[in-house]
Each structure stands twice: as C-alpha cells, then as structure tokens.
Simulated assay, not measured.
Amino acid sequence: MIDSEYSPAEYCQKQISHFKNKASHNKNESLWCFRLIMIGTLLAPLFVSLGGEMWTGKVIPSFLSVLAAFCTAWMQLRKPNELWSLYRTAERELESHLVRYTFKIDDYSNTESADNILVKNVTDLTLKVHKSWIPIIPTSENLPKNDSN
C-alpha cells in the first residue's frame, strides 16, 4: 500500500530500504548455511577418526552430517544466494534512479515530469523483481518426485 503523503524520492528511498533489508537477510542466511555446511563436512570425519567413545565416534559426527545435509538442502531449495543477488541488484538500480532524479540527469532532466517518471520506474522495477522472484520459489513441479511405485 502506498501512502500518498510521501514524496517520490521518499517512496524510492523506502523501496531501497526494503530491498536492502531483504538482501541483507538472504546474505546472512546464505553465509550461515555455508559456514554450517563447511563445519559439518570438515569436522564429522575428524570426530569419526577420534572414534572410541559413543559421543565422539558416532553421535557428534552424525549430528554434524545431518546439519550439513539440512543446510545443503535448504540452500538448494530456498536459494538465498540468488535472492541476495536479485535484491541487491534492485537496491543498486533504485539508488541509481534516485541519484539521477536528485541531480536531474537523463530522463529526470524535465522537472515537470520527473516525479512521475521516478514513481513509474520504481514501481516497474519492483514489479520486475517480483516477476524474477517467482521462478525461484519452490513448487511441486521442481521438487523431487517419489517414484517408489
């Protein structure tokens, strides 16, 4: 919902903040999953080689392997790297529009229609990002099928 009390520049800045927050969330999610995958896959064999005790030889390596497998599946299904890139790109494009609007460059040099052009470009870019995001969402078609018949 758009509140008409915002100026076009404020509207653009709000969208920039929106995409910045989404990009940061996906960046953190991606980096944490990657770290957990690395820790799990590197430490599990080490604990197995220590062997001996039930905890160090079986329970801890099993837990680390399950954690790494879960994070790998999460990254493949949720695709935070792609979302991070998508949202950060949108953020940069909106920043570019805001700079060109602020300094009256290119399409924004005509001061009579600059406000309308900025709102249109911000809205178009937001819709474009949404349409780019839709194919990334997991659906029943792109989930593995169980062919155990």
Rank of each mutant, 00 (worst) to 15 (best):
H130I: 03
K22R: 12
I60H: 01
R35S: 13
F19D: 03
K20G: 01
L64I: 05
K20H: 09
E91L: 00
W133F: 14
L46S: 10
L42G: 10
E53C: 08
S65W: 01
S24R: 10
L127R: 14
L86Q: 03
V119L: 14
A68M: 02
E93M: 11
L98Q: 14
S30K: 10
H18G: 01
E141R: 11
T72S: 15
D147R: 07
I137A: 04
S17L: 05
I136F: 04
I2S: 07
K128V: 04
S30H: 11
I16V: 15
N116M: 10
E10S: 09
Q13M: 07
M38Y: 06
R35H: 08
P144I: 12
I136T: 07
T123N: 12
T56N: 12
L98A: 12
A23Y: 06
I60K: 02
L125I: 08
E82A: 08
K131N: 13
T102F: 02
I134G: 00
P45M: 06
E112I: 10
T111A: 11
E53S: 15
I117E: 13
I39N: 00
N21K: 14
I117F: 03
L98H: 09
N110C: 09
N110H: 10
E29W: 01
T139W: 04
M75V: 13
E29R: 09
T139R: 11
D107E: 14
A90Y: 01
D115C: 07
D106L: 06
A69N: 07
K104M: 06
K120N: 09
L125R: 15
L64R: 05
I136N: 03
S109V: 06
K79C: 04
W55L: 15
P138E: 06
G52V: 04
L127S: 14
E29F: 02
F63W: 05
G57I: 02
A114Y: 05
P80W: 00
N26W: 01
C71T: 05
C12D: 01
T72K: 03
Q13C: 00
E141H: 08
R88T: 12
L77S: 12
R78L: 04
V99F: 09
E91R: 13
V59P: 02
S65H: 02
T126Y: 05
Q76W: 04
K128Y: 09
A23E: 08
C71E: 09
E5Y: 06
K79E: 07
T111P: 00
M1C: 06
G40R: 05
